[in-house]
Design a protein around this nucleic acid. Sequence first.
DNA 1: ACATCAGATTGGTCCTTATTGGTTCGGATT
DNA 2: AATCCGAACCAATAAGGACCAATCTGATGT
Lengths: 220, 220
Amino acid sequence: MTTVEGSLRALLQEGVQRGTLGPGTKLPTERALVERLTVPRSAIRRALEILEREGMVVRQVGRGTFLTDAVLPLADTAPADTSPAEIMQVRLLIEPPVSALAARVATQADLEHIGHFLDRGGRSEEHQEFETWDTHLHRAIAQAGHNGLLMNMFDVMNTARALPVWGSLKRRTSTPERMRCYHSEHTTIVEALRDRDPEGARDAMRTHLEHVSDNLLGRH
Amino acid sequence: MTTVEGSLRALLQEGVQRGTLGPGTKLPTERALVERLTVPRSAIRRALEILEREGMVVRQVGRGTFLTDAVLPLADTAPADTSPAEIMQVRLLIEPPVSALAARVATQADLEHIGHFLDRGGRSEEHQEFETWDTHLHRAIAQAGHNGLLMNMFDVMNTARALPVWGSLKRRTSTPERMRCYHSEHTTIVEALRDRDPEGARDAMRTHLEHVSDNLLGRH
DNA sequence: ACATCAGATTGGTCCTTATTGGTTCGGATT
DNA sequence: AATCCGAACCAATAAGGACCAATCTGATGT
């Protein structure tokens, strides 16, 4: 079942991509949308209400409804085609608290594994290699939480990270300087883990992921 | 001789497999089903009542009866040996920040879904029924985050929650008083969502889950 | 060139009617 | 005697249209 809100979103998104719609453009009147989507005006108004509350459009009596300059949110996507934005959102949600957990319960052996991957990442020259150790490092930190279910969910996330879009995005935005920056942030995280400092680990992981997100998707 | 409930269930299953029915689709009105199955409306209503108790459908006066997403096939499954302690740890890690996210981006429709499940939980008399609405409520809150990957991971968690150990543990520790307590905590969470208060939603969810954890596993 | 005003346009509101799940009650069936 | 069926009725929701007030357009008059 497609909601009116959904088809309206699709309509706008298509227009923006074709260039026929941009910030400030006036979109069809409610009554015109009624004919176009063959749906009662009340439904149109409900949908526009949502878009207005999200800041996507502005409505003015006697003038019309106008697009704002807000970014169009992506429609709900199936698990198969997860967008990088979604992935980063989930990582920012999950990994910081997981790091705090790891700081509390990691064993000496865990810390050694983590240290090993950190070290290999630091000695990587080329992007592809660094990427591999980066994935291993983040996974090892999660593993230090000693929770099988958590690892299961983490791997669901990582399968999404293995998608083609993600790889090309990483490659496009990767520079040697950025690699060194990430490595230093990794080091900060691992030091907090070694110090058994949950808050420190959480914050370090968060700032790291925020940097990654900014670099991949553009600063907001 | 098959029961009305059985033929209704078959009807739905066939529709889902043919793709003509999916989560959220509206199914025929009770009066239409009366003609289609040539049985009295009371029988239809009895059958729908059962399906509703199972969480397969949602009924709303003036709107109709709708399929929920409870019938979705679960792709990734959690390992069978996941312990309740692990589950609660993950829930405490994930659900509070997800609630904060939901408070920021939930649509009006999301809030209505959430409110519906909250209401049903509050009107539940018996443990099993309350449990169903509780699951729906927590899932609806996550859904309000509008992140497909997140939902994917959430469902992995929920398959773990469907394991036998979990059910028996819940049953052993459930009392009417505790149900009322949970419901009031749920209400606090939903109010924070309605107020668009991310921190409030996060904190309310955390204290709620801490209570659940204490009740299930014993206070530490 | 400027001010003014009538008409059209458009988002917001209200009211009536139709639809739909929930409830009640008399009568039939077993 | 108990249960079930059918019908009418109730309350919540949606649909469609009429109407309102803000705004824009353009013609008119000075």
